[in-house]
């Protein structure tokens, strides 16, 4: 039998000419001055983009590449010459001729106070990105006194998959955005209450199993403080056994369906302890569904037990 006969379908002929995209219109740029250095960025870029292009590191907390900026935390403020107040770098559009100072005394004071306000009212013990910022700005949260009001409250441990500890919540709105129009479109949670009493809540604060939540865990993925935490990590931390230094991370493809989401398995002591997905992954942008995010326990069952 000839080899060709074995092929029961015919491969398409190779394309003669690869169609090319129409030439992109020349992208207009704007030039801004960041700490004295001119930098050109595409029109529509934010000051944060411009600062990063200029090699200036701006701290952020409520900002995430995959979410709509809410500019609520204000740790990213910069000084724009001629403006009455400071501007949030994460969301302010760069305009031609803007002169920006990223580290002036005004900027440093605001960032320091904002960090102190957070650290004096919220439990930041698992907010890994914040500790270096507090140190960098010399924040002294204790100066508001021992009786300073906090958001301390009991942990919400009402389902098998993840835990909500809003004593650790900085109200960055990221989870609400991930659950809503920026990713999941489930709208199980929203900000409720007002002022210092504003908090993340289901309707009437009902437990998650009584809410619209589908346990995709996309809120956990974006939470910068550990207020939202998958059960295995929460349990290990409580037992004092959470050990990132003993963990390896491996990318794989989710075994459940044909979408083919990239999973990052975090493995500690030969057990998967957490699953995430890379933010920059084109398929997931960090999002998964309940199966990909939580359905890994079978892999932790020893081979022997599987028979």
């Amino acid at each position: 039998m000839k080899e060709q006969d074995l092929i029961w379908f015919r491969l398409p002929p190779p394309p003669v000419a690869v169609p090319s995209a129409p030439p992109a219109p020349a992208r207009r740029t704007v030039t801004v001055e960041i700490d004295g250095a001119a930098v050109a960025v595409p029109q529509g870029a934010t000051l944060l983009d411009a600062c990063r292009a200029a090699g200036k590191d701006i701290p952020t907390l409520c900002y995430l590449e995959t979410l709509t900026p809410v500019n609520a935390c204000r740790v990213c403020v910069v000084e724009v010459e001629g403006a009455r107040v400071l501007a949030p770098a994460c969301s302010r559009t760069a305009e031609s001729g803007m002169k920006v100072h990223t580290n002036s005394a005004r900027v440093r004071t605001s960032r320091k106070v904002v960090l102190e306000l957070l650290a004096s009212s919220v439990d930041l013990s698992t907010a890994e990105s914040l500790a270096p910022m507090l140190a960098e700005y010399g924040a002294d949260p204790a100066r508001f006194g021992a009786d300073a009001a906090t958001v301390a409250q009991p942990v919400k441990d009402d389902n098998d998959l993840y835990v909500r500890d809003y004593s650790k919540c900085v109200l960055c709105y990221k989870c609400v955005e991930a659950c809503g129009t920026d990713a999941q479109h489930t709208f199980a949670i929203a900000v409720a209450g007002r002022g210092f009493h504003a908090h993340i809540s289901t309707e009437l604060d009902v437990p998650l199993p009584e809410s619209a939540c589908v346990y995709c865990g996309n809120c956990i993925a974006v939470c910068p403080t550990g207020a939202l935490m998958a059960k295995p990590e929460f349990t290990l931390r409580q037992a004092g056994q959470w050990a990132p230094e003993r963990q390896t991370v491996t990318d794989t493809i989710c075994p459940y369906c044909g979408v083919g989401c990239t999973l990052t398995a975090h493995v500690q002591d030969e057990r998967i302890v957490k699953v995430t997905s890379p933010l920059e992954n084109g398929v997931t942008q960090g999002n998964l569904c309940v199966k990909g995010r939580f359905g890994f326990e079978y892999a932790n069952v020893p081979d022997k037990a599987r028979g």
């Binding site: 935390c73 740790v75 904002v114 306000l117 004096s120 300073a148 009001a149 109200l171 002022g195 210092f196």
Partner: peptide, 22 residues
């Protein structure tokens, strides 16, 4: 101001509380 802050941004949400305490 503490009562009327919308609660969106940190300087006002927590700052108005700290102002009252101070």
């Amino acid at each position: 101001f503490e009562h009327e802050s919308c609660g969106q941004c940190v300087p006002c949400r927590v700052g108005t509380v700290r102002q009252r305490e101070l």
